[in-house]
C-alpha cells in the first residue's frame, strides 16, 4: 500500500516534464523526510508528523505549478485588458448583427412572432456563449505560451475614449436598432404577406416588385450602415464627424426616395386598385404626403444630431 507521502509526491510530479521528474521526486522525498524527522524529534507521533508535514506543503497542484513555473491563473495580467477590450468589441458588433440576420431570415421564411423572438434570443445566447468561450480559450493559450510575454496590442494615447456628453444610452441604441429592424422587416413582410391576393392566390405587395432589383437592396445596405452607425454612436456619443456622417446617411436615403416617389415607382398600382382608390390618388395625394414625411423625418434627425454634437463639443471644452 502506498503511503500518504507516496501519493503526495506522485500528485506533484505527475504533470511535470519527464526529465525533471526524478530529480524533483528525490529532492521532495528527502525534504519531506527531513521535515518529518524534525517533527518526530520534537516529540510528535510519526503518524501526525506525516500529516502535518504534507499539510504544510499545501496543495500539490500549486506546488507542481510552481516547480514547472506554470501560471496559476487563466488569463495573465499582461493580457487581461486586451481580453476585456476584445470581448466587449465582439459582443457589441457581432451580437446585434447576428440578431438582425436571424430576425430577417425568420421573417423571410414567414415565422410567427413567437418563433421569431424565440430564435433571436436563442441564437443570441448561443453566439454569446461561443464568443466568450473561444476568446477565453485563445487568451488562456497565449497566457501559457513561452514567448509572448507582452500585450497583444499596444495601448496608445490615440485609443483613449472621447469624453462625451450627452452620452447615447442603451435605450437610444435599442430604439434605433429595433426601428431599423422593423423597417427592414416591414419591407420583406409586405412582399410575402399582403391583405390582398391576386387571381392565382399570390399576395399583392404594397411596393412595386421592380424595386427589388436595385432599390430595396440599396435600402437594406443603408439600414446595415445605420445599424453600424447606431453602435458607433452608442460607443462614442455625438460629435461633429458623426453628425456629418448622419447627414450623409440621411441624404443617401432621402434623394433616391424622393426621386422614386415623384416618378411613381414606389407604390404598387395593383395594390392601390384593390384598395378601391382611384389610380391618380397615388400621385396626387400619397406622393406629396410621403415626400413631406421623408423630408421632415430626415431634417429632424439631422438637426438633432447637430444639436447634440454641439452640446458634446461644449461639454468637452
Amino acid at each position: 500500500m502506498s503511503t500518504l507521502t507516496d501519493r503526495y509526491v506522485w500528485a506533484v510530479i505527475r504533470s511535470l516534464p519527464e526529465k525533471q521528474r526524478n530529480d524533483i521526486e528525490r529532492e521532495l522525498r528527502a525534504s519531506i523526510d527531513d521535515a518529518m524527522e524534525a517533527r518526530v524529534a520534537a516529540g510528535e507521533p510519526i503518524r501526525t508528523a506525516e500529516h502535518d508535514t504534507l499539510l504544510e506543503l499545501g496543495d500539490p497542484d500549486r506546488l507542481s505549478a510552481s516547480y514547472a513555473e506554470r501560471p496559476s491563473f487563466l488569463i495573465g495580467p499582461a493580457y487581461y485588458f486586451d481580453y476585456i477590450r476584445l470581448l466587449k468589441l465582439l459582443y457589441v458588433l457581432v451580437l446585434p448583427i447576428t440578431a438582425a440576420t436571424v430576425f430577417l431570415v425568420q421573417l423571410l421564411t414567414g415565422a410567427g412572432i413567437g418563433a421569431i423572438v424565440g430564435s433571436v434570443i436563442g441564437t443570441a445566447i448561443e453566439v454569446a456563449v461561443h464568443l466568450g468561450f473561444w476568446t477565453t480559450l485563445v487568451f488562456a493559450i497565449i497566457t501559457r505560451s513561452e514567448k509572448a510575454r507582452k500585450p497583444v496590442a499596444s495601448w496608445s494615447l490615440e485609443s483613449l475614449p472621447e469624453r462625451t456628453s450627452p452620452r447615447v444610452g442603451i435605450p437610444e441604441l435599442v430604439a434605433s436598432v429595433v426601428f431599423l429592424l422593423f423597417f427592414a422587416g416591414a419591407i420583406v413582410w409586405q412582399q410575402y404577406n399582403s391583405v390582398f391576393t391576386d387571381a392565382s392566390g399570390s399576395p399583392i405587395p404594397v411596393l412595386q416588385p421592380d424595386l427589388w432589383t436595385l432599390w430595396i437592396p440599396y435600402v437594406f445596405g443603408l439600414i446595415a450602415l445605420e445599424l453600424v452607425f447606431a453602435i458607433v454612436l452608442y460607443r462614442t456619443g455625438w460629435n461633429w464627424p458623426l453628425a456629418l456622417v448622419n447627414v450623409v446617411l440621411n441624404v443617401a436615403f432621402l434623394v433616391p426616395a424622393i426621386w422614386l416617389v415623384v416618378n411613381d415607382r414606389v407604390l404598387n398600382h395593383a395594390f392601390l386598385s384593390k384598395l378601391g382608390w382611384p389610380d391618380d390618388l397615388g400621385m396626387s395625394v400619397i406622393a406629396p404626403i410621403l415626400v413631406l414625411v421623408f423630408v421632415g423625418v430626415a431634417a429632424g434627425d439631422v438637426i438633432d444630431g447637430m444639436v447634440k454634437a454641439r452640446r458634446g463639443a461644449v461639454a468637452r471644452r
Binding site: I24, E27, L28, S31, A35, E56, L57, G58, R62, L63, S66, Y67, E69
Partner: peptide, 12 residues
C-alpha cells in the same frame, strides 16, 4: 518562508 515557496525558488 514557506517550504512550498522555497523549494521551487531554489530550482528557479
Amino acid at each position: 518562508v514557506d517550504a512550498n515557496t522555497l523549494y521551487p525558488l531554489l530550482r528557479r
